[in-house]
Write a protein that binds this DNA or RNA. Structure first.
Length: 560
RNA sequence: GUGCUCGUGGCUCAACGGAUAGAGCGCUGGACUCCGGAUCCAGAGACUGUGGGUUCAAAUCCCACCGAGCACGCCA
């Protein structure tokens, strides 16, 4: 299959892909004329580096292998035929055998006109029901800078998938049923007693962060000495719940300030309470995929994937995280999502094979569960890389970060890295030099355009689509081409989950505009036709900048 | 030890197997009497960790090695 002929867009608007398809079909036609066309000729049409034209193809290289001829020679032959077609203003062979083409200005400006006529041209319609689960956590401490990356990354992916025609359900999973919550409750109880003057020590692997001291103080204010020095299962439950509720409130507040919201918060404990866990165990049992050993119950993971068998139910009768996670995904499947996407930190990578095994064991279709893994954030403070630990209480909270650099910068910063990169966050740099953040560069481009329109209004210069063919400079063409690829950028994010493609794109577009602005007077009352056309171009640019920033959850102020 | 991820100018990061490896920060030198100088233009700065291999073409794919991170629990 030819990779570029996938018709991914449905709609009336002509887009860059249509340009690609146009060149592709032109070439196909030439090959057919020469009777060498074959489905297996997997050539590409792509946007070349600056200075080589509007589009470029490597078809001559592919053919040279088959025909055993010099690629340049083949390119010249194809080039001669393509030159005869209208809509190409230039067709040239370059380098070792690339064929580069330029489109006519009439063709380009007609595309610009369509983008202006339909500002939503870049959106895709659809109603595929999918789910994103992210920012799921042990609610055992405030969110750290590390959680921030996942929260923002997940939120931006949700926004982009929504724009691509998916009905996205956002969910956060709370591990409120495990041993860690028990430790948290006990740690809080110890802090409460310490506050009341009782000498208690934190459990070996308890939570040492100061936030528990603050919570303990608040709790003592509420209930006084009611639980001083007493510990039983009822009190344990109280402290667990109190700690959990307080932490959850804190976390949700942080997320809200970061503009991250969910359609649903799902509690692990509910899967035990409503019997889902038991019924899933029953199903696996009937399939004879569970066996007992050393007092525990194991899933035959090894009969599905390259991994060892794992414990589902401990010898003390409690469920492992793996067990409840299987039940959780069984529940998700039952809710009718076409696909679910789980965003996990790199530390959960080892969990993937066993979950895939569990999906197979439950006969859930391949492709239902998609795990997106991102690397963690290292923090640089006072020139040193610090490792964060919630348990030891050593971390910079997400709230502190947002406070220091602002929501827009925080969001943009997390979105601008390839999720696979082990990013280094220099907190000191972020604090003092927040103006260096590229978010301002993009926002400024948008604000500048708003100002251009204010000026145009003052000077009575009107936006006009009548003379778009005047926009024929290299800079004009570059901007028009950039605008047309916006939908492709979003599609690439949907394909490989790299939100940084969007930030890079917005920076490219902003750079193109800033350069254009410095080189050209946009509002010139002496030249209303050209000014009108340039304002129309600005309108198209601003439409994309505003929508791009909206997808990042970053504000697009009209003045800064 | 095994598996996964990563290694790109001084720093932080880009680059569907393609042309001269791009930006930003920092550094040097320039640009509004004119729509906002949070901008623009120019310059210096890189044998893409090392060594092989595949290809017309490798930062990208394959193998080995070096280095960093993560995971290898009846934690989550």
């Amino acid at each position: 299959m030819l990779c570029f002929c996938m018709l991914r867009y449905v709609g009336l608007i002509r887009r860059w892909t249509v340009f690609k398809e146009k060149l592709e079909s032109s070439i196909k036609k030439v090959l057919e004329e020469f009777e060498i066309y074959d489905d297996k000729i997997d050539f590409k049409v792509e946007i070349p580096p600056e200075g080589f034209g509007d589009l470029s193809t490597n078809v001559a290289f592919i053919l040279s292998r088959i025909l055993k001829k010099n690629p340049r020679e083949i390119a010249n032959t194809i080039c001669d035929r393509l030159s005869m077609e209208a809509d190409y203003s230039r067709v040239e062979v370059a380098g070792p055998g690339f064929i580069n083409v330029d489109f006519s200005i009439a063709y380009l400006s007609s595309v610009l006109a369509e983008m202006i006529n339909a500002p939503d041209f870049w959106k895709t319609k659809g109603d595929t029901k999918i789910q994103f689960e992210f920012a799921s956590a042990n609610p055992t401490g405030p969110f750290t800078v590390g959680h921030g990356r996942q929260a923002v990354f997940g939120d931006v992916l949700c926004r982009i998938f929504s724009s691509r025609g998916y009905r996205v359900h956002r969910e956060m999973y709370i591990n409120d049923a495990g041993r860690q919550i028990g430790l948290l409750g006990r740690s809080l109880w110890v802090r409460y007693n310490q506050y009341l003057g009782v000498e208690e020590v934190l459990p070996e692997d308890g939570y040492q962060g100061e936030y528990l001291i603050d919570i303990a103080r608040g709790l003592a204010g509420e209930i006084g000495e009611r639980f001083k020095g007493i510990w039983n299962s009822e009190i344990e439950a109280f402290f667990k719940k109190y700690a959990l509720d307080t932490m959850l409130e804190d976390i949700m507040g942080t997320l809200k300030r970061l503009r991250v919201e969910f359609d649903n918060v799902f509690f692990e404990s509910s899967l035990i309470d409503d019997g889902t866990v038991d019924s899933v165990i029953g199903m696996l049992d009937r399939k004879e995929l569970i066996y007992e050993s050393e007092g525990a119950r194991w899933l035959k993971v090894s009969s599905f994937v390259e991994d060892d068998d794992k414990v589902l139910v401990r010898s003390n009768g409690s469920n492992t995280y793996f067990m409840t996670d299987i039940a959780y995904h069984y529940n998700k499947h039952g809710r009718g999502f076409r696909k679910v996407f789980d965003i996990w930190g790199a530390d959960h990578m080892g969990h993937i094979p066993r979950m895939n095994a569990a999906m197979k064991a439950l006969e859930i279709e391949d492709g239902f569960l998609n795990v997106i893994v991102h690397q963690y954030v290292n923090l640089k403070r006072e020139g040193e890389v610090v490792k964060m630990s919630t348990r030891r209480g050593e971390f910079t909270t997400l709230d502190e970060l947002v406070e220091a650099v602002g929501v827009d910068s925080t969001r943009y910063f997390f979105a601008m890295f390839d999720p696979d990169t082990h990013m280094l966050f220099d907190i000191d740099l972020a604090r003092q030099r927040s103006n260096d953040n590229p978010v301002f560069y993009v926002q400024y481009a948008n604000a500048r355009i708003s100002n251009v329109f204010r000026t145009a209004k003052e000077k009575n210069v009107e936006t006009s689509r009548d003379s778009l063919e005047l926009l024929d400079s290299q800079e004009d063409r570059r901007i028009i081409k950039l605008l047309t690829i916006f939908p492709e950028i979003l599609d690439s994010v949907v394909t490989d989950y790299r939100t940084n493609r969007l930030t890079s794109y917005l920076e490219d577009l902003s750079r193109a505009f800033h350069g254009y602005y410095n080189k050209n007077i946009i509002v010139d009352p002496e030249n209303p036709a050209l000014s009108g056309a340039r304002l129309a171009l600005c309108d198209a640019i601003q439409n994309i900048l505003k929508n791009g920033l909206e997808l990042l959850g970053v504000e697009a102020p009209d003045s800064m």
